[in-house]
């Protein structure tokens, strides 16, 4: 039998077989693939002769469920609109998706695609970093679960195996004390690509900060984050937080300075390195000098 050009498997199991047997390219919403491999009017997109494995219809990949332990498991091929419409979607992810592209794109695009694309400017992925999301992968050898930050290794690069599919993304649901901070400096108000995507979240309960997550997109080859820094702030009350911040006398304190050291923005057709640097610093300072201290001092509404 000749290699099929378009494969529409009936089940996830069949999809995995096809993926392995044909080195097929997974395709969900096509909003990345069909732009990257753009076809002239009336022609086929140049897909490098790899068969396409359509996964957008697979029930195993398009459901959203709670795991009973406070996590929401979102099928990798669930379209953005369905994620927005789900009542338990964490606010940070919701905010990122609300500002992602436009309705027609949100009716087609998926989290799996945003991860597979592995762009440093991927907005939903940026929120997933800040939420410490975990990604489920299935392959012929079985299933595995990896933290999002370990899955993406460079621009357009992931550790998704050649025989694997992303099946779901799990994020902790909001709970009492959850906060989120989201800013996107885009090329315009809607249907915009990020010049900087900035996501932060965590919980402040009884004056203590836990689960801090900070992620900045489009200022380096991958989304910038730091488990170490997040851990440094874990469990802080206002006094400890202030002390941590004073470990460096730079504007915006220790955390701002350390995050600034991690970014490496470039100039491109959308923005400049200087702008990306300044705005990142402003947002870091807004988060670390204003938002978090206010939350910790219990003054927030």
């Amino acid at each position: 039998m000749s290699t099929p050009a378009w494969i529409r498997p009936a089940t996830l199991k069949e999809a995995l077989t096809m993926r392995r047997d044909y080195n097929a390219r997974p395709l969900a919403g096509a909003t990345d693939i069909y732009v990257r491999h753009r076809a002239a009017t009336g022609t086929l997109p140049p897909l490098e002769d790899r068969p396409v494995l359509y996964v957008g219809h697979l029930p195993e990949l398009t459901s959203i469920s709670e795991d009973g332990k406070g996590w929401l498991r979102i099928g990798a091929a669930t379209v953005y609109t369905d994620i927005l419409e789900h009542p338990d979607t964490p606010l940070l992810l919701r905010r990122a998706i609300e500002e992602l592209a436009a309705p027609a794109l949100r009716n087609a695009g998926t989290l799996g695609g945003n991860i597979g694309n592995a762009s440093p400017a991927a907005d939903a992925v940026c929120a997933l970093y800040a939420l410490h999301a975990e990604v489920d992968l299935a392959g012929h050898a079985g299933e595995r679960r990896v933290p999002i930050a370990q899955l993406i290794t460079g621009p357009g690069k992931t550790t998704v195996g050649a025989d694997e599919l992303i099946t779901a993304v799990s994020v902790p649901m909001d709970r009492p004390g959850s906060f989120h901070y989201y800013r996107k400096a885009g090329t315009r108000r809607a249907n915009a690509l990020s010049k900087i995507a900035f996501c932060a979240g965590g919980t402040v309960l009884e004056g203590r900060l836990t689960g801090l997550g900070v992620a900045v997109g489009a200022v380096g080859p991958t989304i910038v984050h730091s488990r170490d820094l997040e851990v440094r702030a874990e469990g802080s009350d206002l006094a400890r937080y202030r002390k941590l911040q004073q470990e460096e006398s730079a504007p915006g304190g220790f955390l701002t300075a350390r995050y600034m050291a991690l970014i490496s923005p470039i100039s491109d057709q959308r923005s400049t390195d200087a702008y990306r640097r300044r705005v990142t610093e402003n947002l870091l300072r807004d988060l670390f000098e204003r938002t978090i201290p206010t939350l910790l001092s219990g003054k927030a509404g």
Partner: peptide, 23 residues
């Protein structure tokens, strides 16, 4: 032809989608 302008909008299962980047 790149999903930006919406001139190619159609409904799929009742929701708007850009037909220029949809297989």
């Amino acid at each position: 032809g790149e999903g930006e302008c919406g001139a190619c909008s159609i409904l799929v299962d009742g929701r708007v989608i850009d037909s220029c980047i949809l297989p």
